[in-house]
């Protein structure tokens, strides 16, 4: 997946699952949209569906400090890269 495809997919997840339309890439999701730890868990499930593979507990824990769309996209890129390397 390209960065642009990841961004598009994440924005679609935010619209569909969290009723957040077009969040800014560097908006603080918690501050601006009340995106909380419950939403983060739901987002991780969506990311697993998007990647077609499960996240490890360690990978999930790494996501808990994420605050912005850009950081989510960075996180997904790292996961994809790690999967490629492992393969």
């Amino acid at each position: 997946m390209t960065r642009q495809e990841i961004e598009q997919e994440i924005k679609e997840i935010f619209r569909r699952e969290f009723e957040i339309e077009n969040p800014g890439f560097d908006d603080d999701l918690r501050e601006k949209y009340e995106f909380d730890s419950i939403d983060a868990i739901e987002l991780l499930l969506e990311i697993e569906r998007m990647l077609g593979s499960e996240l490890t507990q360690e990978e999930k824990k790494q996501a808990m400090d994420i605050r912005t769309i850009n950081q989510i996209c960075d996180y997904i890129e790292r996961i994809i890269q790690a999967r490629k390397t492992a393969a």
Binding site: F18, E19, Y33, E34, D36, I38, D39
Partner: peptide, 8 residues
């Protein structure tokens, strides 16, 4: 109710 509230 906002989604932030509805979700729970």
């Amino acid at each position: 109710f906002k989604r932030a509230h509805r979700k729970t």
